[in-house]
Design a protein around this nucleic acid. Sequence first.
DNA 1: CATTTATAAATTTTT
DNA 2: TTTATAAATG
Length: 734
Amino acid sequence: MSGPWLEGLNEAQRRAVTHADGPVLVIAGAGTGKTRTLACRVAYLIDGGVPPERILLLTFTRRAAAEMIARAGRMIGPQTAKVWGGTFHAVANRLLRIYAGAVGLPADFTVIDQGDSADLMNIVRNELGVAKGNKRFPRKETLVRIYSRVVNAGDKLSAVLERYFPWCSDHIDGIRSIVEGYVRRKRDNNVLDYDDLLLFWKALVTTSPAAESVADRFEHILVDEYQDTNALQGDILVAMRRRIRNIMVVGDDAQSIYSFRAATVRNILDFPKQFPGADTVTLEQNYRSVQPILEVGNAVMEQAQERYTKNLWSHRASGNKPVLITCTDEPEQSLAVCSNIITHLEQGIALKRQAVLFRAGHHSSHLEVELARRQIPFHKFGGLKFIEAAHVKDMLAFLRILENPWDELSWFRILLLLEGIGPRSAQRIVDQIGVRREQTPVAEPDSVNPASTEAVSDSGSDESETGPQPITSTFRTPLRRFLEGAVNAPASSRELLQQLRMALAHCAGLRLVSNGRNGGFVLEPLGAEPPLSAQVERIREFYEPVFNRAYENPTIRLRDLEQLEQIAATYRSRGRFITDLTLDPPTSTSDLAGAPYLEEDYLILSTIHSAKGCEWDVVHIIHAADGMIPSDMATGDSEGVDEERRLFYVALTRAKDNLYVYFPIRYYHTGSRMGDAHSYAQLTRFISPTVKALFEQRLPPGITRRDPADPGTFPRHANTPDQVRRQINDLFGA
DNA sequence: CATTTATAAATTTTT
DNA sequence: TTTATAAATG
């Protein structure tokens, strides 16, 4: 069997694509056509008669899955859209909605993100009082990280603390009791966190009555970025493949950069042991980068403690060496980046085909200001997510309690927004309406929801149709009690509470009718719930005055709410909207450069982590200084440094034709009250003398080094007088 | 007594 | 820019 798509594949790729049944490990170096191989494999399988819905494609982001499925679709037709594709977490969610009953979950659980997990952890922490007056007790974020590592790595709490959080070891008993409370609290609130999605998926395929049925749904499983999976995900795959043994995993041990999320290269190394009889295919020919860029990448990896034997090679020769640019400080770095970007743009390389990469989200902030000043549009990936902004979380909290009225966290968030209500009153109200249920009502043990098996994965489609619901005595009790008005609240907040009640009732498709006594209400159904967009609009009507009072700069934040509404407009199901937003949040765009998402061409700014799997014609890596990459936080042990090296390697190998690495010598420490203190940085340790020799070294464009006392000569800068005049005009409003 | 406001301190990477 | 604690206010 062969299709036109086999044309142009090299021998190793072809072996991977046409591999027969059974387990296969594909070791794919950077840029060796792994996406293409996976897409072709999907097309090959479907062409060979495998029903698309019986293929499961696990990737690191939803975008990656969508891309591969679309690519396969271009080869053999639109039926590829039925392939199950997405992240482990998204697939877990989808399976659990179908098989909830088999693992004792209610089917209407909602998913909370890491920030929510931290807040919930904090509630328990405060209630238990274990941290009282103890400044050294782990913060809520740390507690979540500890818990998450224990679960994902499958290690004991004591071992995790000793190895990764030694400064918390003294508090092991306190931590244990907080975690116990946290786990109970999630169950009472009818919520799952990211880790639960995986835990319950594992339970579903190991101990549940539906185990075989779930595993047998899929004839083939394909996993991308296998080096960044963790022990728990490995267990899930093993369980999924006990009977049908077709699995292909693709990965590169040199690109493992998620150990902070408990990912381990052991999964790759142990693959042949976990899946006996596995074949291995290695892809070494790089199609992405010119040879001089690969040489730098290879040289950086040579210094690794654990030697990676892969050496990438390419047919793409080039006289262009990668360029190392030494700048005096960060402002000069920003200027140099802009200048090089413009030069390439003038040579016909669109902004979209260039990217600036950096270690941490905030490393780009200075550059962002400079780009905005020059009106170069950009789009930033990674760093602070728009979903994490307080006002966006507020809006979502309203939708969440409509979807899951046992969600304590969302009730708190909303109640605290109201003037006159603080933690105390909020707690009282939450108690009064019975948000914390002792026992979660469970779906019938063997109930499988046949309607949701037809669910389609892409946005905009509904998987549950929510018609008018009867108002029975048990229906959504906390919400009902709240709407009926059975709460004691400070008189100053009565008016706002009543407005909130009306907004929520409207969204739930109910009408409030006064019961004539003590200010209470009777609920009357008004037919079906209004469409999601109408609900969002109604909530915003209530929220906007509250929002203007609560936040300093409402106008900037208002844009986020508008964006949220636009996204909501593409959904019909409220539940799907909430879940998609927490499992696959849109990346934020900076407001500074106008509305970049409306522009046709924009520059890419990205953390190195978010750049995984991407490629650009021109790549600029900034802050190549020790302390930035490797990050100070990671230089404690050699494993940490090794991971930073792989991170740097990932950054280098994103470049196709041109690579620039920028190193600012001097860093200013603003914010500290020590005046204009500054310090001198070292070039990143990953650019050793041998590596450095592979670079062409340059000064920033337009800069000539000179004796500090010598004014030197400057290129004439014709624009400066205009700029000065413009500034003056701005000041005087002319 | 509960809420709001003021002050100081800390800040990697992501599903 | 958020978050824990202290003081001020209603």
